Structures are given as structure tokens and as C-alpha cells.
Simulated scan of single mutants.
Amino acid sequence: MSRIGKLPITIPANVDVNWNGSEIVVKGKFGTLQTIIPDTINIQQDENTLKVGVKNEIRSLRSLHGLYRTLINNMIVGVSEQFELTLILKGVGYRAAVQGKEIILNLGYSHPVTIDIPETVSIEVIKNTTINLKSCDKELLGSFASNIRAWRRPEPYKGKGILYKDEQILRKAGKAGK
């Protein structure tokens, strides 16, 4: 049995969890999330806690036990509290702005980069160089932050690029002079 999988999931008062065999739907004040779960995963609800189990103790099914417990827990936390990521633009002239449903980034290219914002993600730009991303869907939030960061990854010589909030860049020494 999985160490993570056997932990109970507490359900906050403002969250509604429904499932029917292969699909689980979680509703809260920040949105609605749904996912498909395999038939081999068992879910039991006792008042305000959920327990995730496995019907058969086959190795491949046991590996899914902790995964689906974590996915369901992330859905419950997301619709009740939301997940937040912060990106920092480091470099001369690097800036970000939100216009409608797009984020516009100036990253030292000859043209501004425009990226469409997904519906469930909210963006706040602070002082042109700090981007706060919030969403109830952790997977979508991480994927969107990764897409933004892919436009200008941090480089090791000057440390310029798009960084996560507490990320440390290993700096390299430049070319040694004579």
C-alpha cells in the first residue's frame, strides 16, 4: 500500500465532491475541476474526508494509488484556495503587460511576444517585471508558466531570463582575460 495513497483527504466546508465510477467532479468557490479515474481506484467518503484505495494489489495498480490520491487532493485544494506561481523577468528592457486575454512580453527580441491566457488562469503584473499567476488547476498553471519561461530561459553568465520566484541560477565565470 502506498504511503501517500493511504493518507485521508480532508474536504473543506465550501467544496462539493461527486464521482460516478470513472469520473470525479470537484466544485468550489474558485471553479470546477473534473478528471477521469481508472475503475481500479476505489473512493470512500466519510463526512468530510475521502479515502482512496485500490481494488487489487497488483504492482501497476499500486503505483496509481498515490498518484490519484495526490491528483484528487490537488483538485480539492485548487478549488478552495487556488495555486499561485510568481515569475520574475531579469534583464535590461524586459517587461510584461496584460492586454485583454493576452500577455505581452518584451524579452530583448526584435518583436514583442504575445501569449494567449487560458480561461482559468488569472494574471497580475507588478512593476512590469513580476508576473503573478493564479489558477485552481495546478497542472494547467505549471504548464502555462513553463510556456512563458520557455521564451527566455535563465542563462548562467549574466543571470538574465525568466525565473521562478525563489530560483537560484548557478553562475559561471566568463572567459578569463590574459
Rank of each mutant, 00 (worst) to 15 (best):
R153Q: 12
L107S: 06
V52T: 08
Q34A: 12
L50T: 06
E84A: 13
T86I: 15
L85S: 11
Y94L: 15
L71F: 09
V25E: 13
F30E: 02
G53A: 07
R69C: 07
K51F: 10
W19V: 04
T32H: 00
W19R: 08
R152E: 06
L64T: 00
L163I: 10
I43R: 01
N106W: 09
Q82A: 04
G53I: 04
S110I: 08
L105Y: 03
I115P: 05
G78Q: 08
K27C: 01
Q168H: 03
N56S: 15
I88S: 10
I41G: 05
G100E: 12
G159V: 02
K175A: 00
N48T: 06
I43K: 06
E23A: 05
I148E: 02
G31F: 05
G91V: 06
L105W: 06
P8M: 03
W151G: 01
A97Q: 15
K29H: 06
P118N: 13
Y94R: 09
T10M: 10
R153P: 01
S63A: 15
P156C: 05
V98Y: 01
V92D: 14
A96M: 03
V98R: 09
Q45N: 12
K51G: 03
I123C: 05
M75A: 10
P112Y: 09
I148D: 03
L105D: 10
D137C: 07
V52E: 05
V26D: 02
V54Q: 06
K178I: 03
G78W: 06
K90C: 03
N128S: 15
L33C: 02
S146V: 00
K90L: 07
T35C: 02
E139Q: 14
N20M: 11
I162R: 06
A176R: 05
L133W: 08
V77F: 12
L67H: 12
